[in-house]
Design a protein around this nucleic acid. Structure first.
Lengths: 254, 254
DNA sequence: AAGTGGTCTAGACCACCAT
DNA sequence: TGGTGGTCTAGACCACTTC
């Protein structure tokens, strides 16, 4: 007789987990400024009751909100909104891979189609057995004005597959890693990035509509799959008048 | 009579939670390369048995490892090491506040003690009611060679407290936010950062031993407390021959 | 069919904060 | 004293992978 009432409702296939639905609801409310100015959010017990889910499920939802820095919790007191949203555009996933895939509102323009080349140093850094790498060059545009040029290097086989897939348009929204992901889902697990300032190379300057020899931002990114194998190496030059590297940081989640 | 055996062992005060102990154990093993080369890690059931804890507690430990990108999990298959550790120095908390507090191996040198100044634009950005801000200037050194200069701005009261606390040495390891945290623990919850390339300002160039007008990296950071109130504004110029901004990214945790 | 990780529950005890 | 979040358990069902 411990049954029938208070039993878990089975979840349809393709339906999101309960904690993700609660997460989404709370996130919407936060974005609407519902709990601004230090007001306390509903307690776990309250939400557990209201949504008809266990306290652990509610906690799971809060975990994600805390990890994103949208909310902070004080034992014995309650849960409060972080109010980060007030300060400029809040990116959902702070400093994460997805930010690079997004580049919201920008377009890419292929300047050099994918081709095989011999590049010893690049091949070494991609941990390839030979010197042959696949290379391509593209520009990024915002409102039709170019702000960055990127040289992309891939292992030859991957370059081959990318070329065949036609996932990369000659011009349009999207990114190389976005294209890679489209036919190899989950292939990219992480990346290293090194950013520095250099005089803009002479051949790059006109492409990003920038004065010769002026300071520009240079970003070098190496993408890895889950096994730690390099998947892509990208070197970008940005016109600093049109682009700055933005990053939001937060304290580590408890 | 549901008791006595299989009952939870109560945890002493000041003792770490069980899931954190398991997390630490697994992390050590990972750092030793125990599960390298795609070997599968122990399953939840296995660890649950071995450590005498429930499966949920084991899951909690794995959650943190996944969030750090040290490990990835495949439903139906198992848990595997990410092998990110192979690629250069792995920072524990990727792109998080703690990275800025660390600046491992570097020192700071105070060039201008804290003083009150009238700075309209800065005060506005710190959301202060008046134009008065507390300002200080410091250099960062690595192996006695200066690589960056930072101008720091604080709300006047906070500057006052910092000056009185003497938490900031004239020279030595440490950072301003580290000093702030020392007498206001948990005060800093997040930060925004904007990085761009500029010609090095004439007065800054000699301080970072860099040629006049050459490209340098400019980082502007705004720190916030949990309520979203700005706590500090820092503008840094880096000698790109001696310093590059490094960042590791990873996919969002599941 | 057996094993894996993903989700979820109902209940418990704790330390801490408010009153 | 009652409410809050933090930890933990024992057990359940699921989808998916492997055999």
């Amino acid at each position: 007789m411990t049954d029938s009432a208070s039993r878990r409702v089975p979840r349809n296939v393709r339906e999101k987990p309960a904690y993700q639905r609660l997460y989404a609801d709370l996130r919407s409310e936060l974005e609407e400024g519902r709990f601004a100015d230090g007001a306390r959010m509903p307690t776990e017990a309250e939400l557990s009751e209201r949504y008809g889910m266990s306290r652990q499920t509610v906690r799971r939802a809060f975990q994600d909100l805390v990890a994103e820095g949208l909310v902070y919790r004080v034992p014995g007191k309650g849960t409060f909104a972080s109010n980060f949203l007030r300060h400029g555009h809040y990116v959902r996933s702070i400093g994460a891979i997805e930010d690079l895939q997004a580049f919201a509102g920008t377009e890419m323009e292929l300047l050099q189609r994918i081709e095989l080349r011999s590049e010893e140093e690049i091949a070494r850094r991609l941990e390839l057995p030979s010197k042959v790498v696949a290379a391509l060059v593209l520009r990024r545009l915002y409102e039709d004005a170019p702000f960055g040029l990127t040289r992309v290097f891939l292992p030859p086989e991957l370059g081959q597959r990318l070329a065949e897939s036609e996932a990369l348009p000659t011009k349009g929204p999207g990114t190389v890693i976005g294209a890679l992901e489209s036919f190899m889902p989950g292939s990219i697990a992480g990346a290293n990035q090194v950013i520095t300032a250099v005089p803009v190379p002479p051949d790059v300057a006109p492409q990003i509509e920038y004065g010769a020899g002026q300071p520009c931002l240079r970003a070098e990114r190496t993408y890895f799959d889950a096994h730690g194998t390099p998947v892509e190496l990208a070197v970008s030059f940005y016109n600093p008048d049109r682009y700055a590297y933005r990053l939001q940081m937060r304290r580590r989640a408890t």
